[in-house]
Design a protein around this nucleic acid. Sequence first.
DNA 1: ATGCCTAAGCCCCTTAGA
Length: 260
Amino acid sequence: MRIASFNINGIRARLPRLVEWLEERRPTVACLQEIKCQDDAFPAAEFEAIGYKAIWHGQKGFNGVAILAEGAGPVEAGRGLPGDPEDEQARFIEADIAGPGGPVRVVNLYLPNGNPHPGPKFDYKIAWMARLRARLQELLAAEIPTVVVGDFNVIPEDKDVFSARAMAADALMQPASRDAYRRLLNDGWTDAIDTLNPRGGVWTYWDYQAGAWQRDHGFRIDHLLLSPQCADRLLAAGVDKAYRGREKASDHAPVWVELA
DNA sequence: ATGCCTAAGCCCCTTAGA
């Protein structure tokens, strides 16, 4: 099965491009971030028409996540990141997906950006990452085959950015952000793209500004983390880079992992 | 040091993104 993740930056503005990608690539599961719409505005019928059932967690104007799956569709297993009842931002949804190798839990997240650093938005990011770690530790302890995907808004190492110097002040690569991401990996999650591209130089995001796409000034912030049960089944992982170059593209490209 | 683009709210500028 192939599980994909795509920060689409507005589902209404991107719908024709998104349908195009789904039909051309046919991922088994497609996790979307930054849908930027309220629940009643989610275009579920358009996805049904091409064979995908969906669950979604939206909010007005910003954020918002969704999981699409072929066949029987996703079975929701939770929405909203546990650990802070005050947090109402729509950034987290979990589902179980039936597969030929047994069910797989898919966690789809849109981690806070955290800029500007320092400041309250950065503090929210780091606190969110601590809550995420706690939730993911529960899933590891349960030994559920799990794939955690999404826009993590963390550049894990200098090899994951076109210029570490240009981005040095950014929240995406502050030591506190990287340490929190490293702690996740140390708990037992496998970063699929990094494992298959250990020398780096793989980008998943290119800014709209300053000709970043034309200059290939990107970085890697969209990640696919595999629990040990899924890491054993890793066949391939990659970036659908060409979609970033199309008309009306998102500033992110889709990423995907293929499991046996 | 700053803006470079883009989407969406709400209503043509502001907020947020990364």
